[in-house]
Structures are given as C-alpha cells and as structure tokens.
C-alpha cells in the first residue's frame, strides 16, 4: 500500500471511520498473514498471532507516531509475537523444530476448489508445483519470499520489520532466492 494512503486511512480510522479501518485490514492483512506464515507457526498459533497484531493495532491507532508506517508497525508486532510463540515451543517441547508443526491447512479454499475444475487443471498443477518448490527452499528464502508475496506487495521497510533484516540485504537475497526457485522449476521442466 502507498504510504500516504496508509497514513490517511490510519487517521480516518482513528477518528472512527469503519470503512477506512476495513481498507487497512484488506490492504495490510495479507502482509500480517505472510509474516505469520513466514515464521512457520501452526494454524492455531498463526490465527492467534494474527488477531493479536490487529487488536494491538486498534488499541494503538490514535497513538502511532508515524501513521504512514502502520504496515511496518503491524509487521514488526506480528514478528515479535511469532518469536514469542517459537520461544515458548522451544521451552515446552522436546523438539525445537517448529516446522514439524507447520502444515498448511488441508481444507481447500474456495479458490482452490475452483482450480480443481477440469478446465483449470493444468494451471492448478502449475501453481501446486510452484508452491511445492517454494516450500522446499531453505528457510531464509522461504521466509523472505513468503513475506514478499503479500498482496499488495510490501515495501522493503515493511519486509525489514517483518523479518528483522536490513533493508539493504533484501534486494540481493530476493534475487538469489527467486533465481534458485526458477532453476528448481526448470529442472522439473515446469519453468
């Protein structure tokens, strides 16, 4: 989302405008979800962290110092809650591999069901292969790409807040990860 637009929406939402708030949820919700997913939480934890980030955002709405950076604020809040979940898991669980819990929900989304129609089968297969190859990338690449693929595309400030990495490292890592993914797809003959 455009920063000036975000700043104006935050101001309106703080003044009580529900439509402005809804626009923020639609514009920044996919970013928050991407951050949560990038950290490989279980579905239940992912849902709670997503809610926590939005509840806090509502709570701090009128007090944000830099309204136009609301996306980075949400991304950073989600990241910190994710890290708490991972920390608690390490403490209580015999394994420290959170990805053992990382299963994308089995239930098909409406869009997925549409893809299952015959005409779309080929496209569906391509999307699935792309996703499968993406999930087999190393953790760094998976994290970065999962955040970058939020819609609308996040700014690098937001990506930086989402993952706790320097803005300057995002471009080079993105390039390396996308090229790695492409070569995996080409090896499978689907590139």
């Amino acid at each position: 989302m455009d920063r000036a637009e975000v700043g104006a929406l935050v101001q309106s939402a703080a003044d009580g405008d529900a439509a402005a708030w809804k626009a923020l949820v639609d514009g920044l919700g996919p970013l928050v979800w991407s951050v949560v997913r990038a950290h490989g939480l279980s579905d239940a934890d992912a849902h709670e962290v997503y809610q926590t980030a939005w509840f806090r955002f509502a709570q701090h709405l009128g007090r944000l110092r830099e309204r136009e950076k609301a996306g980075a604020w949400l991304a950073s809040t989600a990241r910190h809650e994710c890290l708490k979940v991972l920390r608690a898991q390490r403490r209580w669980m015999p394994t420290d591999d959170p990805h053992l819990l990382d299963r994308v929900s089995e239930e098909p989304t409406p869009e997925e069901s549409v893809l299952d129609s015959e005409e779309a089968a080929a496209e569906s297969e391509r999307v699935r292969r792309l996703w499968q190859e993406f999930e087999e990338l190393g953790e760094r690449c998976r994290q970065l790409l999962r955040v970058l693929m939020a819609s609308p595309p996040p700014s690098y400030q937001e990506v930086s807040a989402a993952l706790g990495i320097a803005v300057g490292s995002i471009g080079p890592t993105r390039q390396r990860c996308l090229r790695r993914l492409r070569s995996r797809l080409e090896r499978r003959g689907t590139g």
Binding site: W33, Y50, Q51, F57, G62, V127
Partner: peptide, 29 residues
Amino acid sequence: EEELRQAAAILDPVPAALRAIAVEAHALH
C-alpha cells in the same frame, strides 16, 4: 514473484474468519 503472489492468494490466503475478526477489531479502539 508475481506468480508466487498469485499462488499465495490461492493456496494460503488470509482465512475469511480472521479477516472478519480483524474488521470487527476496530471496536477495540
């Protein structure tokens, strides 16, 4: 990257119930 974005929108979108909860959260202000 754009292809990935479309794949994410299909295979791992924000669950509708969560979006609804976030919309309602305006009341917490």
